[in-house]
Design a protein around this nucleic acid. Structure first.
Lengths: 218, 218
DNA sequence: TCAGGGATCACTCTTTCGGGTGAGGCCGGA
DNA sequence: TCCGGCCTCACCCGAAAGAGTGATCCCTGA
């Protein structure tokens, strides 16, 4: 019995390509559905109960990480494998946190993908060595950070940081969050302190590097 | 005789998917090669002389737009169709200027792609109505020639931009380049003008998005 | 109950940005 | 030869940023 796969990706050409590819390995995998948005992915996961969902991150309406979170909460038996072009570490970490069973890049080879899918249904994580290495480092760094007493950013600070990265001035940020510019400065100072940065420009590049911003192109 | 196609995209899975798709229409198209980087695309265009190149924009080493420019200059008979997920207008305009014969989104349907490819080899532009509409508007607004056209940064400006993205202040940049802070300001003003940005923070995120900064571990 | 952290805000002060304007030297194309 | 772009620099000025200090309110955990 082939592995039942749901493909969630907003690029129709990519979906069609994957379907065409998987048709060459009908013994192993069977695409039982496609979703174009995160919303659709959640609905189809409920209706079709696939074994595995190949989920992109950038999708309209609801991104793949949010969709994965919802699906994993309701159907933990479904293995969700993020299949994306994003090499942002932040996306990887978030994927792990929302319960993804794997994180693969679209630069992967099709045969490797098939191999990893075989493992996934028996509970193995689907990821390349490079990705696994990143996770290890992250865990190690997290421990080091904890010992150092380094603090994570609060929700509010993350929000401010995202806006800073978008190029917004403190005044604009204040208006968007309906708070005073003094508060924005206060948050920003806290951000710079926690991340050991010197100015908003460094904060912006930090945010980009760690995938805290979601550009709608790529 | 099928249309000879070269696929340039850094995502192996996407390339394999496209090849698998095109194999279903062997009467119409034949994939004669793949390229993973812009560099490779230029080389393979020279070696293989395809009829059409399906070119992604984001690629390592050299992006698709630069590659298209080089290829078009040397082999104007090759039709270069940008096949990307970028809905950024700037990319579209730039594509037109480097001589691309078409601009398509990956959200396209495979059958539509095949139809458009048929037209391309007889000289028709490959684009959807939505894209064509954008171009019309741009021409009407004289945006292509007047504003979006000349947005190429000079070497000096690129250098300044990279330093801006690293979080350096104008003073620091001036010291690193051994010029006065006034000159740095002058360059930065020019950068902001060309890229239609408002401040250095936006310039920094722009630099990150366009890979102008050397990626570091972290 | 009390300490501590988070979110909010005010006020001051110095530095940095970024716009405006103008200008000189250099170099390559029309 | 002249025009235009590039790189360089200067001065002015208002706006924005960022450091410093202190304060209030709320919530949570020891």
């Amino acid at each position: 019995m082939p592995i039942k796969v749901l493909i969630a990706d907003d690029h129709k050409l990519f979906r069609q390509g994957m379907i065409s590819l998987m048709r060459t390995r009908q013994d192993l995998v069977e695409v039982i559905g496609e979703a174009e948005t995160g919303e659709e992915a959640v609905q189809m996961a409920e209706q079709l109960h696939p074994d595995v969902i190949l989920m992109d991150i950038y999708m309209p309406e609801m991104d793949g990480l949010q969709a994965a979170k919802k699906i994993h909460a309701r159907f933990p038996e479904i293995s969700i494998v993020m299949l994306t072009s994003s090499e942002r570490d932040g996306h990887l970490y978030e994927a792990v946190q929302v319960g993804a069973a794997g994180y693969l890049l679209k630069s992967l080879d099709a045969d490797e993908l098939f191999d990893l899918l075989k493992g996934v249904i028996s509970g193995e994580p689907a990821m390349t060595r490079a990705i696994a290495g990143k996770l290890l480092k992250a865990v190690a760094n997290r421990m080091v950070d904890d010992e150092k007493g380094e603090q994570a950013l609060t929700e509010r600070e993350l929000f401010v940081l995202r806006l800073v990265a978008s190029g917004a001035t403190n005044q604009i940020i204040a208006e968007k969050l309906s708070i005073s510019i003094n508060t924005v400065k206060s948050h920003l100072k806290s951000i710079l302190g926690k991340l050991q940065l010197e100015n908003r420009t460094q904060a912006a590049t930090y945010a980009m590097k760690h995938g805290l911003v979601m550009p709608r192109d790529g």
